[in-house]
Design a binder for these strands. Structure first.
Lengths: 192, 192
DNA sequence: CCGGGAATATGATGTGCATCATATGAAACT
DNA sequence: AGTTTCATATGATGCACATCATATTCCCGG
């Protein structure tokens, strides 16, 4: 049952990782087979030895991005909790941190991609819907149990919207104002 | 001072309108010169008699979409106010209405585009930032004056995030749950 | 050191698209 | 009606990209 890790499997991983970053930086359209392969230290031609199609890569990359980002957010939230913050506050401070807003290629793929999800098809659409559910589950891990579970969707909406608006505004006073307002709003409302 | 409306000006308007719809339906990448011209009842070749470049069209279309959507939202909100809702509630019910979520090609361009805005450049980026500001101003027109003005950003984040997540989830139970949660959250918090 | 198969590279093909050069057609004025 | 000018159409051109066919290189067991 051990994973047989050969040269090919390692390349596969590198390709998916590279794609998951390009995906979050530039969206679904921004993932070009040539570039991804170059980032993975390979040339474009061998691509179809690893994936049936570009779409298949996208579907894997979407899922990889979600897992990857969830790990990062959880790790940082644990750190904040260690520093004495409540779980929910630690989560909000992680998701709305400057580093998460700026480092979009390692950040939450829902924030990066959800605007383009409705125009995806097939397995990419399936994976997309699934990672939206992942975000909801992540929120629920940190939301105080006194809060009705449905409200996880509202929290997720505010988080995703705030990150997107901030990125759209760039590194300006307004951008910071969006983050500040969203933090204040979420904490006043849900930090028990 | 009258607008000189000749054949060319009319075509220009039709092109921008068509582009503003394609833009909201399919994003910046989804706007293809050939298709837009076809939608406007023309052929692709004449395009550069109207615009210096595809980018110039995009910049105009972004602005047009914003004006167009703001009018639609304001009109519907006035209707709801006529039916006895508070201004803020009327606005929230308009923005989070099923018709706004479904009819994205006539809806808010910030919700449709803000995920792609960070990768735009030049005049398109400028116009994009500007219409994010338009959304904030629209929210402020309906937010009770007892609420601190900064919170308009939080309201905008929740609205945009909720519409995007709902569209991403498609016409499912979960999609409806997102809208319901966002409405409840915003109204409990800000409807004076 | 060497053969054979797996992994990857090179190069070709076709498509979709922005852009542009030129041709056609319609309207306006004489 | 005839000429001029503006508006739009036809038909390149070139580039970027996904896909695929074929060649080369790498690694491992003899």
């Amino acid at each position: 049952m051990d994973k047989p890790i050969g040269r090919k499997a390692l390349s596969h991983e590198r390709i998916v990782d590279a794609a998951s970053r390009d995906l979050r930086r530039s969206g679904f359209h921004g993932v070009a087979v040539v570039d991804v392969m170059k980032s993975a230290g390979l040339t474009h031609g061998g691509f179809y030895a690893h994936f049936a199609s570009r779409e298949a890569l996208l579907a894997e990359a979407v899922t990889r991005a979600s897992d990857n980002a969830a790990d990062a957010i959880k790790t940082q939230a644990k750190n904040f909790q260690g520093a004495g913050l409540s779980p929910f506050r630690a989560f909000v401070e992680s998701y709305l941190s400057a580093s998460h807003v700026e480092d979009c290629e390692n950040g939450c793929p829902v924030a990066a991609l959800c605007g383009e999800m409705p125009s995806q098809a097939g397995h990419v659409a399936d994976a997309s819907r699934h990672i939206v559910g992942n975000l909801r589950r992540l929120v629920l891990q940190f939301l105080p149990s006194s809060v009705p579970r449905e409200m996880a969707w509202s929290v997720a909406s505010t988080l995703v919207g705030a990150v997107q608006l901030t990125r759209a505004l760039g590194d300006t006073q307004q951008g910071k104002a969006v983050i500040a307002a969203a933090k204040r709003d979420l904490l006043e409302r849900y930090d028990s």
